[in-house]
Design a protein around this nucleic acid. Sequence first.
DNA 1: GACGCCGAGTGGTCCGACCACTGTGCAGCA
DNA 2: TGCTGCACAGTGGTCGGACCACTCGGCGTC
Lengths: 245, 245
Amino acid sequence: MVDGVRTPVAQRTVEQIKAMISTGEVGPQQRLPTERDLSARFGVSRGSVREAIRILTTLGVLEVRHGAGVYVTALRPDDLLEAFGVLSEVSPDPTLLEVLQVRRMIEPAATAIAAARATDEDLKRIGEMLDRLEDTDRSAEPGDSGAFDLGFHRGIVACAGNATLTAVHAGLSSPTLNERVWAGHDAAGIARDLYEDHRRILEALRDRDPEAARATATAHVLRVERWLRSHLRSVGTSLGGEPER
Amino acid sequence: MVDGVRTPVAQRTVEQIKAMISTGEVGPQQRLPTERDLSARFGVSRGSVREAIRILTTLGVLEVRHGAGVYVTALRPDDLLEAFGVLSEVSPDPTLLEVLQVRRMIEPAATAIAAARATDEDLKRIGEMLDRLEDTDRSAEPGDSGAFDLGFHRGIVACAGNATLTAVHAGLSSPTLNERVWAGHDAAGIARDLYEDHRRILEALRDRDPEAARATATAHVLRVERWLRSHLRSVGTSLGGEPER
DNA sequence: GACGCCGAGTGGTCCGACCACTGTGCAGCA
DNA sequence: TGCTGCACAGTGGTCGGACCACTCGGCGTC
């Protein structure tokens, strides 16, 4: 048995754990043997088992509960796409435009679906999110404002009832990305425009008007995109800024 | 409900490394300090640094070369979304419908953009892909057919010139997922319809007609989606769709 | 019966050692 | 001179054991 290829232990362990899942030895939501048991079972060190678990955790397949054990997730799209967010955290600025372009494709469609599907509680929750957004927009620092802006849009997308869509959208609109887009937007004076956009979107949702929802959402993303484009052009290429020299 | 500072060391290390990247201390393609150096610099054990590196490697941010060092990837969207594929490997069938719904949002828009941007070589390449698809469709096994189908659609999306979009689309149309959708489609006899769809899309692209491109692409995805829905229903699955949380 | 403490078991972290691989520079050869 | 080949230093890969932090369930108290 000459195996010419030398497979890293951690990688092999990943495969073994995945096999345990796909063979049904442990199902979704169920608990995995302890790290020490797996270590003995696979004949590798505990550290290697931990690295394998780290990988699968990052991929959204496993979930670790300190002191309680390692569990298989429900394997839903939102579990598996959670890691997706790094994209918007480390990508260079031009990528932000690409991301917005993708959002321009999915957010209007999602908003249209939401207009047809949202329950009264959904609308109430989204409305409250918007109220808080406007409150903090006037009083607190822009950081909080961004969080509620995020909540507003995510709440709408969630109403579309498509977990995959929700997860993809979440990845394209992480807090970090939002922050990078809006850094200094208060001074730019387009806050009022955004305020108006949000209100119109909410009205369209309340009217249960998919077409209006699509149109208002499109206009909104387009406004952000255009603003970002001109902004990037004006400041050049200062990604993440240079902190203290 | 004050959130304490109980941040795990490994997680914090991930943030610190990400910070090194986003501040530009280490750029794309560049080499990171050694594990031992990072260990000393962050004041954590080498094992924890390794776990952090594992996470970032899984996310496509870092790349490890045994004996040579740890490097930052090009940070292109396709690097960062490489791990995206797990979605289609372990997700339950109803997720496939969700995925197609998302594709219905982005693929028509992408095709429309492609119609306006595609070069002659692009069109030539896509046309050849389609020829090969039809050839294998008639002669070889459906597996190859799926590969060319994938190539056709990916080629179109790539013409849109948005790497993020390309990567997202790739994640939503991995070979594994494609295979699951089309398992048995030859027997279902809709191959001819798809053939027709593809030809119309290509014609729209050649006409540089964005609206036609959008319409034909929409019709195509819609056909696939409808086919899959009826197929899933026949085996007793139903579309989930109730929003979580 | 309800409350609260405590200990066993689990993951989290650290340390130090050694193995496996890579790249480089020097010595030896043609 | 020019190239080849090997040794070495540096890097990631793996290991084992030790201890810390957290969870949870059982036992005692009230």
